[in-house]
Amino acid sequence: MRWSRVGAEWSTYVFETIDQVVTLLRQQRYICDRKLATVIFLALKMNKPVLIEGPAGVGKTELAKTVARALNRSLIRLQCYEGLDEARALYEWEYGKQLLYTQILREKIGSLFAEMEDLRAAVEYLRQHEDVFFSEHFMVRRPILQAIASPEPVVLLIDEIDRAEEQFEAFLLEVLSDFQVTVPEIGTIIARHPPLVCITGNSTRELSDALKRRCLHLAIGYPDEERELEIIRLKVPELRETLARQMVGLIRRIRAMDLRKAPSISETLDWAQALVLLNAERLSRELVEETLQLILKYDRDVQQVSAQLPVLLEGADGAARLTFDNMDLREQQERYRTNERAYFSSRREE
């Protein structure tokens, strides 16, 4: 059953090529590579949900928001948390309202039944009208149902799905594969326009295979040096180019360390903003130490990094420039360690 609703006029863009995705996202001030754009493009063309995984702060949620803006669609967001159930995510009956209505309509109902000859007829009569109390009218729509029943295409963002329990994943399955919701009392509600579903996760726990199978998978990692610079240039244009370069270099070296929480793009941007406010000319040791709290969230990490700062900063001056691009994190770490060893051994020789 579909919602009986007059379809409103809407204007929404359709991506035709992958390059167009890149440009449109860029217009919305989101820098992305072709890899990411390809997945978004496919998701739209194939009507498939996207599962976005990656460390915190690399712009997973931001991507969904930007895509919504770029497509001129509205964004419906469902923040997951432990204990989230279908009453909060899908729909809920308004029992209070139902009870209230029955009470108010008591007299009316009584008069209707007055003419009935026997109980059997009354029950039969009642049965014809029971859908009055189980209709759309008494239903609270929660985000997922909103997205499915929306008269215009929307973007549905299911944020941090790994915070919710596994049962929650299970009831998402119907929505994700068929874009429909079954309400036992009413029937199946099928989306008129399949929403673009973005699911984000921090991989704090392994998601079920059933869920993964229904999605396109997108792993967002830390960007490479050039892209990170580009992002800083876009978001914090006041920052000097040289300082930005120095900063990105240092951040990348910090990321290569074995930290509890490595700084990600959002931290880089915070830091850049702070450096602009502080009118910094270049990264000095004191300055970095004072502002380290902005990029590192754990005391232990701060201590570890400050202990290594001379080495890390030396690198920032270009002495031991490392090419971290196109390496995964483990490689980066190993690379960093070998470089560090080389650095210390060369010192000893001097």
């Binding site: 390809t38 997945v39 199978r213 999605c215 998978h217 997108l218 792993a219």
Partner: peptide, 14 residues
């Protein structure tokens, strides 16, 4: 592009 398409559709484990 081919690589990304295959990766996003076939590989779901980071």
């Amino acid at each position: 592009t081919v690589r990304v398409v295959l990766r996003s559709t076939l590989v779901k484990q980071c």
